[in-house]
């Protein structure tokens, strides 16, 4: 069974990936994907994301997680599970 998850790109993350969204899979030998590994995989796939990740935040299922994978106030560690929706959200500053 495919262990897929969605990645949504916003603002400058779209310019760096030339994609609005992608479906990726969790490697066969893992059940879940740690957030630091997710960032490494996405950056390897789209080198332009390296600069974007210097300030972009991540959300899994509309919930902020920091780049180490901590949810909320340094609490629970989360990893990407099959069926999750990951959003890469850089700050927009125009107006």
């Amino acid at each position: 069974m495919a262990k897929n998850f969605q990645v949504l790109y916003f603002a400058s993350a779209r310019d760096a990936t030339l994609a609005r969204e992608e479906t990726l899979s969790i490697p066969d030998d893992c059940h879940t994907l740690p957030v630091p590994q997710l960032i490494r995989n996405l950056t390897a796939r789209h080198p332009g994301l390296q600069a974007v990740f210097k300030s972009a935040i991540l959300a899994i299922n509309n919930q902020y997680v920091d780049h180490a994978g901590r949810e909320l106030d340094g609490g629970r560690m989360v990893e990407v599970k099959p069926g999750d929706e990951v959003a890469v959200i850089p700050p927009v500053s125009g107006g």
């Binding site: 400058s12 974007v52 300030s55 902020y64 850089p90 700050p91 125009g94």
Partner: peptide, 28 residues
């Protein structure tokens, strides 16, 4: 708290270069 580090300047697009559809800032 959310964005402790500013975005690298080369990743920042402004309205005069990137454009903006007028009603979008209007809605925000």
């Amino acid at each position: 708290c959310i964005f402790p580090k500013p975005p690298p300047p080369e990743t920042v697009t402004n309205c005069s270069d990137g454009g903006v559809l007028g009603v979008v800032p209007g809605i925000i």
